[in-house]
């Protein structure tokens, strides 16, 4: 972002727009009244948007942090000599698992676990593991052989080599996996409203069921901004990581 002032970034403007809509959607009431004169109420009122956002964010954060921790740990395990035998199977699972539609995974989790936020978190976690494992394995295996040898040459133990050399070098690739995972999680959590989880998708579904288009628009705009904002934050994080590595 060198050469551009921080206040001129799209990140800031999208963030401000999101925050404003989250807190004061009611300011748009005249616009909705003009567009949908016959609908009442015009602003979703069964829960505040802030409340819905916090619930949505919690689902995504719990599943996302869990998936990142477990996914990276698994990737480390299968790229060490001790876990080498599992490398192929884990790679196959991650690749095949990602062909499963996320909605189907969410729907299948319900009979096993029940309705509510729990199946949503578990489905998000399991599905979110896959891109993280895939990228983390690729990142760790992408560390050049001579770099590894140099690390051994200067006398690093295998643990030191992992934390001081391999993980920092693989960090941008790992982050890309987490980014894909979180983007999918935000979208899938939105659909979690159909299995009883409270999210920003709730107004969309209530609106579709009750044929109240304003609810659908309010929910959809907030969900879209939430996803875009998160992606922008990841882009910023990626930029920072690469710059720190001098790439």
């Amino acid at each position: 972002m060198s050469g551009r002032a921080w206040f001129a970034t799209p990140l800031l403007w999208v963030g401000l727009l999101f925050a404003a809509l989250l807190l004061r959607m009611d300011l748009l009431r005249p616009v909705f009244r003009w567009a949908f004169p016959e609908t009442t109420p015009l602003i979703y009122d069964r829960a505040s948007f802030l409340e819905l956002f916090v619930a949505h964010l919690t689902l995504v954060a719990v599943a996302g942090f869990g998936a990142a921790a477990v996914g990276v740990a698994l990737a480390i395990f299968v790229t060490r000599p001790a876990g080498g035998q599992f490398r192929t199977m884990v790679g196959t699972l991650a690749a095949v698992g990602q062909t499963f539609p996320p909605v189907a995974v969410l729907a299948v989790a319900v009979p096993a676990i029940g309705f509510g936020a729990r199946p949503t978190v578990i489905a998000l976690f399991v599905y979110g593991l896959l891109p993280i494992i895939e990228n983390a394995v690729a990142g760790l295996e992408g560390v050049p052989h001579d770099v590894r040898e140099a690390a051994d040459g200067v006398g690093l133990s295998s643990r030191q080599r992992l934390f001081a050399v391999e993980l920092p070098l693989a960090a941008p690739v790992i982050l890309a996996g987490i980014r894909v995972s979180v983007t999918i999680a935000i979208g899938t959590a939105t659909i979690g409203s159909t299995v009883g989880a409270l999210t920003l998708g709730t107004p969309i579904f209530d609106g579709l069921v009750a044929n109240k288009l304003p609810f659908v628009i309010e929910g959809a705009v907030l969900v879209a901004l939430f996803a875009i904002l998160t992606d922008m934050l990841f882009a910023r994080l990626d930029h920072w990581l690469r710059r720190r590595r001098g790439l």
Binding site: T183, G187, A220, V221, A227, I228
Partner: peptide
């Protein structure tokens, strides 16, 4: 295209309802 891919499906479906109707 990246921006479009980021928007969750149900949100995009919802946003298209208005212009299409």
């Amino acid at each position: 295209l990246n921006l479009l891919q980021t928007v969750p499906s149900i949100a995009l479906f919802g946003l298209l309802i208005v212009p299409l109707s």
